[in-house]
């Protein structure tokens, strides 16, 4: 009987801890985002973060996009050629990328490269009392440290997603047209006829914007809320990658159902 009560207490405590963490993360986002804008001070900080979060993620995004586009074209060709419709490879590559693969894969790679780096950086700042030091100087770390990183993630991810799609389509072109010999005119024409700007491209970008909010929010919160020890930072970094990847995949299903569910 006692062990049942102990287990119940444990369950209750962990539920309360989780709810409290969600509350704290909401407060963090509110304080970081809802603030009087100070363009003169904030802009250089934002630019620095856009560089480290966005520009430095470009190589991994481009390489991944290229290979995924190439694989899509190759896989699509082997199936479509049986039905004599290999001309539709361009359409297939473009639709798969802009609707689904580009937002999701970019967000997952972004969580692994930039999200984990953000968590580790903020966690280490906390461990070395840099955040406390900043507070005592009278500067709010939520605005100075968290806010520029959050906005940088939010801005970078949709742009990285577009780059991913573009490079992926180019990869598809390399394999489909240059290697497998599909007629280039029909590769592009099929793509242009079937990809709708609002239904496909804009919806894909909306997805990446939502993923940008979630991944960066999880990353900065895990860093800020980490236990200030080396073990605490390692746990926080792991949590960032796991939570944000799961959130991206779960949200992708919900967003896809909302956007394309009535087809």
């Amino acid at each position: 009987m006692q062990s049942v009560i102990a287990n119940l207490a444990l369950l209750g405590r962990s539920t309360i801890n989780r709810l409290a963490a969600i509350g704290r993360s909401g407060m963090l986002l509110m304080h970081a985002v809802i603030a009087r804008p100070e363009p003169f001070n904030s802009f250089p900080l934002l630019m620095r973060q856009l560089y480290s979060v966005g520009v430095l993620s470009m190589v991994i995004i481009m390489v991944s996009g290229l290979f995924i586009g190439m694989v899509l074209a190759l896989q699509g060709y082997t199936i479509l050629v049986d039905y004599g419709s290999e001309q539709a490879v361009g359409q297939m590559v473009a639709l798969s990328l802009v609707r689904e693969l580009a937002p999701v894969v970019t967000a997952l790679l972004f969580a692994g490269r930039a999200g984990s780096a953000l968590t580790a950086e903020i966690g280490l700042m906390k461990t070395t009392e840099q955040l406390s030091g900043m507070e005592m100087i009278g500067v709010d770390p939520l605005r100075r440290i968290i806010a520029p990183r959050f906005w940088a993630g939010l801005i970078s991810l949709p742009i990285l997603t577009m780059i991913f799609s573009a490079v992926g389509i180019w990869g598809g072109l390399l394999v489909g047209v240059d290697w497998l010999g599909i007629y280039e005119g029909s590769f592009w024409a099929n793509m242009q006829n079937s990809v709708d700007f609002f239904d496909d491209v804009v919806n894909g970008l909306i997805k990446s914007l939502v993923f940008g909010v979630v991944v960066t929010w999880v990353a900065v919160f895990q860093g800020y809320d980490s236990v200030p020890t080396s073990e605490g930072i390692s746990q926080a970094t792991t949590k960032t990658v796991v939570y944000s990847s799961l959130a991206v995949l779960g949200l992708d299903f919900i967003l896809t159902a909302l956007m394309f569910g009535d087809l």
Partner: peptide
């Protein structure tokens, strides 16, 4: 929160670890 940051401008604190950026 806001008033606290204003009051802290009147204080300086030397941390045990230094807490340099």
């Amino acid at each position: 929160r806001h008033e606290l940051f204003n009051v802290r401008e009147k204080m300086g604190m030397l941390f045990q670890s230094g807490a340099l950026f």
